[in-house]
């Protein structure tokens, strides 16, 4: 290796032979410059570039700042609006009343005000026109209980009012409440109902309840759906079917493909205990029969049900019930 100084003294040659090799100021470059100087309007990039950057950054900054402050104001007012709307809704809220405990019973209504024994199981639920016994409880001062009990029910969709209870003398303290009375109640149709309890002409309190559709499900395990003596659907699940894992199901439809062609087929699974619904097969338009068959003889689907127990698989065609089967999942 030559001495450092010697090498550096040859730096010019070294660089011209290597990294700086060749012509880098070409005729084209010259022509470009000649053209550029003749065109004074053309601002060159080094003059506008920093300015452009500065402008862009300051604009972005301003926008962000403005956005934040305005955004705060706006979101503030939106939140207020939402609150207002909620408050409005609250006055006639159609959410089912909450459950609470008193004297060892679960009740529905307003804690420390009014309610009746109810725990949202299938037995105590309201079904259209099904009369059942419900035990009412009231908490309050003696002077609030002047007059007889009247309960007026209003349905969520129409303002039709019916008196479900009228002229009832309530009994004394029971289950931690100041007054109580048994009652027989029924509501005529499904949906949310508002139950206003009056003593005399004074509104005492309100309970919201849901009336459920008649349980038409037959929870007996059946892997075939028979209608008018014809088997429309049978299902062959995986023999090791169990909850919490995806399993394959083979649905065997017997109707001709014309029944399904161009229609939306969906399968929903309902859990008996929790009434939970999951979508097993999301709505799919049927364009072709099962491969190699004339109709949906081999319609396969793979899905997972979360809990063990009885599950009802409902086949829905264009939004209408077509068939169902009930299977027990381990």
């Amino acid at each position: 290796m030559n001495s450092m100084e010697e090498q550096l003294n040859n730096l010019r040659k070294a660089m011209d032979d290597t990294v700086l090799k060749g012509t880098h100021f070409t005729k084209e470059q010259k022509a470009k410059i000649r053209k550029a100087v003749k065109n004074p309007n053309r601002r060159n990039r080094f003059e506008w570039f920093p300015k452009l950057l500065t402008t862009v950054f300051s604009l972005v900054f301003l926008i962000i700042v403005a956005d934040l402050s305005i955004g705060e104001k706006w979101s503030g007012s939106i939140v207020n609006e939402v609150k207002d709307k909620n408050a409005e809704k609250q006055t006639q809220s159609w959410k089912e009343s909450s459950l609470f405990k008193s004297g060892g019973y679960t009740m529905i209504g307003e804690k420390q005000r009014l309610g009746f024994i109810y725990d949202n199981n299938e037995v105590l639920r309201f079904y259209p026109n099904k009369t059942q016994k419900y035990m009412w409880h009231f908490w309050g001062e003696d002077q609030e209980f002047k007059g007889k009990l009247k309960v007026v029910a209003t349905h969520e969709n129409d303002n039709e009012q019916i008196n479900v209870l009228e002229g009832i003398e309530v009994g004394g303290p029971n289950n931690g409440a100041d007054r109580h009375t048994p009652s027989l109640m029924s509501l005529p149709k499904s949906g949310m109902w508002k139950l206003d309890a009056y003593f005399g002409n004074e509104l005492f309190g309100t309970v919201f309840v849901r009336v459920y559709d008649e349980p038409k499900e037959d929870w007996k395990s059946h892997d075939e759906y028979v209608k008018d003596g014809v088997t429309l659907l049978s299902v062959a699940p995986d023999p090791f079917l169990e909850a919490g894992k995806p399993f394959g199901y083979l649905f065997h439809f017997t109707a001709s493909f014309e029944t399904f062609k161009g229609k939306e087929l969906a399968i929903y699974a309902y859990h008996k205990e929790t009434s939970e619904r999951i979508t097993a097969v999301s709505p799919t338009i049927m364009n072709e029969p099962s491969a190699g068959y004339a109709t949906l003889e081999r319609f396969t689907a793979t899905f997972e049900v979360p809990y063990s127990g009885l599950w009802r698989y409902e086949v829905v065609l264009d939004g209408e019930f077509y068939a169902d089967v009930v299977l027990f999942v381990k």
Partner: peptide, 30 residues
Amino acid sequence: GERLTKLAFNYLKDWGLAQDVVQDVFITCY
């Protein structure tokens, strides 16, 4: 031209940028 382009390259290590700088210099001169 050539000398300045190389000089600029020694700073920028990019021939394109070096040429831009030199062009800018000559326009300023003009």
